[in-house]
Simulated scan of single mutants.
Amino acid sequence: MVKGDVNKPKGKTSAYAFFVQTCREEQKIKQPDQSVNFAEFSKQCSERWRASTANDKRRFEDMAKNDKVRYERDMRVYVPPKGMAKSGRKKKDPNAPKRPP
């Protein structure tokens, strides 16, 4: 069962997510047949991200800005299907008793 609309544009990706994607690709090139322990991998990626300079991060931040522009452009065109609009809390019946009798 699919939750939500399948035609809705994919969300915007952060600079860190782009960084992790490139780390994963590097990992696949170095060790293509070895499976990766995700906890270990994410820990190494986060350490590399913290250690990298603002100059190194700029490339990923630019990628994130471009993806944000893409997302905003796609959302302007996107029209949710009927019945899929934002649903907040149910409206309380004004005739309902305030508390049990």
Rank of each mutant, 00 (worst) to 15 (best):
N66F: 09
Y78F: 14
R76E: 14
K3Y: 06
P97K: 13
G11K: 09
V20G: 00
R50K: 15
T53H: 06
N95P: 02
K86E: 07
V20R: 01
Q27A: 12
Y71L: 12
E40T: 09
R59G: 05
P94G: 08
R24I: 00
D56W: 02
G11N: 10
D67N: 15
K8C: 11
D67M: 11
R50P: 08
V36Y: 04
N55V: 11
I29L: 14
I29F: 12
K3A: 09
F18I: 01
F60C: 00
R73F: 03
A96N: 11
K30Q: 15
F38D: 05
V79P: 04
P80S: 10
R59A: 13
P94M: 08
N66D: 13
K30M: 15
V2P: 06
V2H: 07
T22Q: 15
N95H: 08
N37V: 05
F38L: 09
N95M: 05
K92E: 10
A85I: 05
N95F: 07
F18P: 01
V79D: 13
F18C: 01
R70C: 12
K91L: 12
R24Y: 03
N95I: 00
V79W: 12
P101N: 10
Y16C: 01
K10I: 06
A15L: 03
K43I: 04
E25S: 14
C45D: 03
S46A: 09
P9T: 06
A17E: 06
K65F: 09
N55H: 13
P101S: 13
A17Y: 04
V79E: 15
G11A: 13
D62P: 06
M75S: 11
D33Q: 10
D67F: 06
F19H: 01
E25V: 11
C45P: 02
T22N: 14
R70L: 14
Y71G: 05
S46N: 07
R58F: 15
R58G: 11
P81M: 05
Y16I: 01
G11T: 05
K98F: 08
